[in-house]
């Protein structure tokens, strides 16, 4: 009887098994090659399955800034305070966009200081952790630091629920699969959807933020730009209440036009399109390095 009880107890204890570590596995060297056409991240991680009962649309085009400042210069669109780090001792440091020292301590780079992994360890799990790690450009890591997007974009649940935040930012660049567009500009429309869970229900409220005609530097050899907007500008003064409870996001885009910095022999190279299924044209993708909701809090 005693042995039976022990056996039953032992077996029951394995019902606690969560297999956390095996939730998200990939074949060897997944997403690890530089050829983006073979490595698009197309996942929507069940966010596309959730029940949206209310959708509110916002146009953030005139509040959205994109820049790639040179060493020592300010990031366009950010306040001075948001590009300054104040240490516990009160010392203030300018957060340099071009310093990309990964992770250890806070560094003095904007990316490694303001990244989501620094705010909460739960952002370190999974493939998309590369969007939260603070590496805002290739910087020798090549494909390992970015997520390569087609126009269908990607979606994901955040590991926790957003409580409050002030601004949204992402580090990105454009890239073509063909030559002839060195340091070109991609005029692109972005659509960011934030999903807020409606308490005591299975429903979600969606805030769809459109950012149209954004001039995205493309084929910049690993150099990315920071695109950002303040929630208060887009959502209004009630933005904290709206953000409280956001659990997921979707990002999609469409390429309007690609302007080459030189004359560009389009006949020779072709005109890139944002559709991965188009076999006639070369491809255009958004290389996303970082999703940032700096100085936010999560529960």
């Amino acid at each position: 009887m005693k042995i039976k009880s022990i056996l039953i107890l032992s077996i029951t204890s394995f019902m606690l098994m969560s297999c956390n570590k095996t939730n998200e596995l990939y074949p060897g060297y997944a997403y690890d090659t530089g050829k983006f056409e073979t490595n698009y991240y197309l996942e929507h991680n069940n966010v596309d399955q959730i029940n949206v009962s209310k959708t509110t649309e916002f146009d953030a085009s005139k509040y959205t800034y994109i820049s790639n400042p040179t060493f020592g210069k300010k990031i366009t669109g950010l306040t001075e305070n948001d590009q300054t780090y104040t240490s516990p001792s009160g010392e203030k440091k300018f957060l340099e966009w071009n310093i990309d020292t990964p992770i250890e301590d806070y560094g003095t780079g904007y990316g490694p200081t303001e990244n989501l992994s620094s705010i909460d360890d739960s952002f370190k799990n999974g493939f998309l952790s590369r969007l939260y790690d603070g590496r805002v450009r290739c910087d020798g890591y090549y494909a390992k630091s970015r997520v390569q997007l087609n126009k269908t974009g990607y979606s994901s649940f955040f590991p926790k629920q957003l409580v409050d935040s002030r601004y949204f930012a992402m580090a990105l660049r454009g890239q073509t699969s063909c030559e002839g567009y060195e340091y070109s500009t991609a005029i692109t429309d972005f659509k960011l959807t934030l999903y807020k869970h409606i308490s005591n229900s299975n429903d979600y409220e969606a805030y769809v933020v459109s950012m149209n005609d954004i001039l995205v530097p493309s084929n910049t050899h690993g150099i990315s730009s920071l695109m950002c907007f303040y929630f208060v500008d887009v959502f209004g003064l009630n933005y904290q209440t709206m953000l409280n409870g956001v659990v997921a996001m979707t990002l999609t885009f469409s390429l309007d036009q690609l302007i080459s910095s030189d004359s560009g022999d389009y006949e020779k190279y072709g005109i890139p399109v944002d559709d991965k299924d188009d076999e006639k044209h070369p491809h255009f993708c958004i290389m996303l390095y970082e999703i940032m909701i700096p100085r936010s809090s999560w529960r």
Binding site: E24, L25, P27, I103, D133
Partner: peptide, 23 residues
């Protein structure tokens, strides 16, 4: 509880996971 049983065999074709952007 975290990996399950025989995980080195079970996941030998999909052995990769990401943590803090590393493989």
């Amino acid at each position: 509880t975290q990996y399950g049983f025989f995980y080195a065999l079970q996941y030998k074709d999909t052995p990769i996971y990401f943590y803090n952007a590393e493989l």
